[in-house]
Each structure stands twice: as C-alpha cells, then as structure tokens.
C-alpha cells in the first residue's frame, strides 16, 4: 500500500473520530429529550446510522465487488479483498444494529426481541454473512478462495430480497421504517434531525476507515503467506541440493544406502512445514497453506526418489 493511501486512511480515520465525537456531544448535551421516548431517543442518533452502514453500504459494497471479481475483465484480487473487508465490517455493524435495536426495544416494547420482519431478516442476514466469513477462513489458494467467496457472497446477496419479502409476509404486523414512519418523522426536527444526519455521516466515515484498514491487513496477510512460501521453498531447494551434492550420498543403483536418504529428506520437509505452522500460529490459514503446499513436493524429491523406486516406496509407505 502506498504512502498516499496510508495518509488517506489516516485522514478518513481522523474525520471519523471528529464527526463521531461531535455526534456524541450533540446527542448527549445539545439535543433535548423527546416528548414520548424521553432520553431513549438518543439511540436514534446511533441505531439508524449503524443499520444504514450495515445493510446498504457494507453488503452493497460486498455484492458489487464480488460481481466485479467474477467479471473476467475486472478480475483482480483487489475486488476480492475489498469485498471480504466490507463483509467483515458489515457483520460487525449488523451485530451492532441488532444490539442497539434490542437495547431500544427492551424499554420501549418491553422485550429484548420480537419476531418482527425487520429484526428477523436482519438476524438472518447476519447468519448468512457469518457463513461467508466461515468459508473465507478455510485455507485455500488466494485465487481459489477469492472465486469461492465471490460466488458465496453473490448467492447470499440474491437471497436478501427473498428473505425480506418472505419474512415481511410471514409477520404482517411488521414495524415500519423508523425514518419513513410518518408519526416519528414529524417529531424528528431541528437539532435532532441535524444530529441524526451527522450520525449518518460519522458512521459512514467509520465504515470507510474500517474497510481501508481491513483491506490493508488483508494485503499484509497475503504477503506474509507468499513470503513464508518463498522461504520454505528456497530452504527446501537448499536441502535438496545438499543431499544430492553430499559426497557420502548414494550413487545411482547403490542398493540399501539410497533408500534411507529419501525418507530423511521427506522427514526434513515435513518437519519444516510443522515449524512454519508453529511460527505462523496467529495466521493459521497461511500456515496450513504452506503445509499443504509442502506435503507433496514431487519435483524436488524426485532426483533422489527416481533411482530406487522399489526401495524408496517401501520405507515411505511404512512411515505413513
């Protein structure tokens, strides 16, 4: 990531911080409590903006970038990483939407949870995209994982309107949208309306900042994976050449002595993969990626293995 990009991330982060602080100040000290809801109305400056970010910004961006990844002309890992970052931030915001809504619902409706259409479909959406994250954690080649995740995101996204419709019909006594609700709309005015608007701006900035940071983490994590692979490959190359150049190493056709050489190399490779897995424990995907790549190594092992196929396969099979 370029220095300019990093600067931009910082600026967005600063703007998000300032606007959030300003929203908090307005929400708690400037705006008056509402007539009916009292001081509870202050959740209105947080809950709708968070829901807006979760349901529209995050998942919209995720669907768009998945589509652009699957489109052959725009297929770059940029879209994959962007989509993954958006989903991850979106899941956090969806959970926050449910939590803040629940906090509001308890004093207002008297229950933490009701089976209204909005709540139910939001909860389903959360589970849908948790599935995406679970799929993403499965170790795989970046390209393979990208394609798989893009398909999963699109399939999940297609489901969103169907879920909304069906849940809407299922629970016809659903709650109307807060901002679009005519009764409430009249009450939100003056300083409250401005605070709410600022809340939207602040949460959107927070979202953009989080996605930028998450994107950078994604890039760095991929780079770690690549570099570990490079290191382990070059080390194995060095090992392989050391074994073949070793003066004590068996010449072609020498029975008995060649056979132990092969398992030794393979055991070394296996141990190297385990070492890597241990060192890389905070990022298990990449470690096991390395382990997966390390396991077969047919090309490097073959110079030793070829001369003695009959002898070589036996101890190998025994060890496994």
């Amino acid at each position: 990531m370029s220095a300019r990009m990093r600067l931009a991330t910082r600026m967005v982060g600063l703007a998000a911080l300032v606007s959030t602080a300003f929203t908090v100040w307005l929400a708690f000290w400037v705006t008056p409590p509402a007539k009916v809801m009292g001081t509870l109305v202050r959740l209105l400056y947080l809950h709708p903006p968070v829901a807006w970010v979760a349901l529209y910004c995050a998942f919209g961006l995720a669907a768009l970038s998945s589509l652009l990844y699957l489109w052959r002309r725009t297929r770059t890992l940029f879209w994959d990483r962007l989509g993954a970052s958006a989903v991850e931030v979106g899941v956090v915001f969806t959970a926050l939407t449910l939590i803040t809504g629940s906090l509001w619902g308890r004093p207002t409706w008297g229950v933490w949870w009701t089976w209204t259409a909005r709540l139910t479909s939001t909860a389903l959406l959360l589970v849908l995209f948790l599935g995406y994250l679970a799929l993403r954690r499965v170790p795989a080649d970046p390209e393979v994982r990208a394609r798989r995740c893009a398909v999963a995101a699109l399939v999940a996204f297609v489901d969103v309107p169907i879920v909304m419709f069906s849940v809407d019909w299922w629970q016809t006594l659903h709650q109307q949208g807060t901002v679009l609700n005519p009764g409430l709309d009249l009450k939100v005015h003056g300083s409250m309306a401005w605070t709410m608007l600022l809340g939207f701006v602040a949460m959107t900035l927070v979202f953009v900042w989080m996605v930028l940071v998450r994107y950078r983490v994604e890039v760095l994590a991929d780079r770690i994976g690549d570099e570990e692979l490079e290191v382990s490959l070059s080390e194995r190359w060095a090992e392989g050449s050391a074994v073949t150049l070793d003066p004590g190493a068996p010449s072609r056709g020498a029975p008995g002595r060649g056979a132990p050489g092969l398992p030794a190399t393979l055991v070394g490779v296996g141990r190297r993969a385990e070492d890597l897995a241990e060192h890389a424990s905070p990022v298990p995907e990449h470690a096991s990626l390395v382990a997966e790549h390390a396991a077969p190594v047919p090309e490097h092992a073959s110079p030793v293995a070829e001369p003695l196929p009959g002898h070589a396969t036996e101890p190998l099979g025994g060890r496994r």
Partner: peptide, 19 residues
C-alpha cells in the same frame, strides 16, 4: 460448513413452505 451456509439461505423456503 455446509449446514451453516445452506440453512439460512433456504429459510424463505421453510417459511413459505410451512405457511
């Protein structure tokens, strides 16, 4: 992984089917 992925997706079928 499969149940986690499939079951939320087919929730509308459960709703509509049982209704």
């Amino acid at each position: 992984l499969l149940p986690l992925l499939v079951l939320p997706i087919v929730a509308p079928v459960l709703i509509a089917g049982s209704r």
